[in-house]
Measured scan of single mutants.
Amino acid sequence: NLYFQGLKYMVPGARVTRGLDWKWRDQDGSPQGEGTVTGELHNGWIDVTWDAGGSNSYRMGAEGKFDLKLAP
């Protein structure tokens, strides 16, 4: 699974964008943008601060869902 392989790169400072299971509307800005991981992966959740200004926790394994992917 590509998403599980990418988890080791989901570290503080990593750049991310919305992924396969995104369901959080425009939390990442409008139009959709990139963000920066600000915390360690914990119980399948990870913290992100978006360039647009907001921050929140997103699923990276929790509930079998992956809200994020590494930015290109």
Rank of each mutant, 00 (worst) to 15 (best):
G44N: 02
E63N: 10
E34V: 14
V11D: 03
D67E: 08
E63R: 07
T38V: 13
K65H: 06
L20V: 14
Q5E: 15
Q27Y: 04
F66G: 01
D67I: 01
A52E: 08
E40D: 10
G54R: 08
S55M: 13
R59G: 02
R18A: 07
P12I: 14
K65I: 03
Q5S: 13
G53S: 04
T17C: 15
D21P: 03
D21L: 03
A52T: 10
L68M: 00
M10H: 04
P31H: 09
G6Y: 15
Y58C: 05
R59E: 01
G19A: 06
V48E: 00
R25W: 14
D28Q: 05
Y58H: 02
D28N: 11
Y9H: 12
K8R: 10
G39Y: 03
S55L: 09
P31M: 08
R18T: 04
G33D: 08
G35D: 03
F66N: 01
S30N: 14
Y3M: 13
L20Y: 11
S55E: 09
D67F: 03
D47I: 14
R59L: 03
D51T: 01
P31L: 07
K8E: 15
L41T: 07
P12V: 13
E40S: 12
M60D: 00
E34F: 14
G29V: 05
M60I: 05
G44T: 01
G54T: 10
D67M: 03
R25P: 09
T36D: 02
N1G: 13
K23M: 11
D26L: 06
G54V: 11
G33S: 12
Q5R: 10
Q5I: 11
M60G: 01
P12S: 09
W24K: 03
I46A: 03
K23D: 11
E34I: 14
G6C: 15
G35L: 01
E63V: 05
N1Y: 10
P12Y: 11
M60C: 09
S57R: 15
W45V: 02
Y58A: 02
Q32A: 15
V37T: 04
G13P: 03
R15M: 03
N56Q: 08
L41P: 08
L68A: 00
M60Y: 10
G13M: 06
G39D: 07
V48R: 00
A71G: 07
L7V: 10
N1A: 13
E63H: 11
F4R: 09
D26T: 07
V11K: 11
A62S: 08
P72N: 15
D51I: 03
G29Y: 05
Q5Y: 11
D47P: 13
T49E: 12
Y9Q: 10
D21Q: 04
Y3L: 15
S30D: 14
D26F: 07
L68H: 01
K65N: 05
R15Q: 02
A14I: 08
T38H: 06
G35E: 02
L20C: 15
V48D: 00
L68V: 07
Q5M: 11
K23Q: 12
F66R: 03
D67H: 02
H42I: 13
A62T: 04
K8V: 11
L2N: 15
L2I: 14
F66V: 06
D28H: 04
M10F: 15
G6R: 09
P72K: 13
P72L: 11
E40A: 14
T36I: 09
G53K: 02
F4A: 13
R59N: 01
H42N: 12
T49K: 12
S55Y: 12
N43P: 02
N56T: 05
F66K: 04
R59P: 01
G44C: 04
G61L: 01
W22P: 03
V48M: 00
Q5H: 14
G39I: 04
N1K: 08
F66W: 11
V11Y: 09
K65W: 03
A62H: 12
V48Y: 02
F4D: 14
W50G: 00
V11N: 07
G19L: 06
E40Q: 13
W24S: 06
D26R: 06
G44E: 02
Q27C: 07
F4P: 15
Q32R: 13
T36N: 03
P72A: 13
W45E: 00
M60T: 01
W22Y: 06
Q27G: 07
G29E: 06
G33L: 07
G19P: 03
N1V: 11
N56H: 14
L41R: 08
P12D: 08
L41Y: 10
D21V: 04
K69V: 12
W22D: 03
D67Y: 02
L68C: 01
Q27W: 06
Q27N: 06
T49H: 11
W45L: 05
L41D: 03
S30A: 11
N43D: 12
M10R: 06
G39S: 14
G64S: 07
G35R: 04
D28S: 05
G44M: 03
P12F: 10
G35P: 01
W22K: 03
G35M: 02
R15F: 04
N43E: 10
L2P: 15
W22G: 03
R25S: 15
L70A: 08
W50Q: 00
A62M: 05
D21E: 03
W50P: 00
T17R: 13
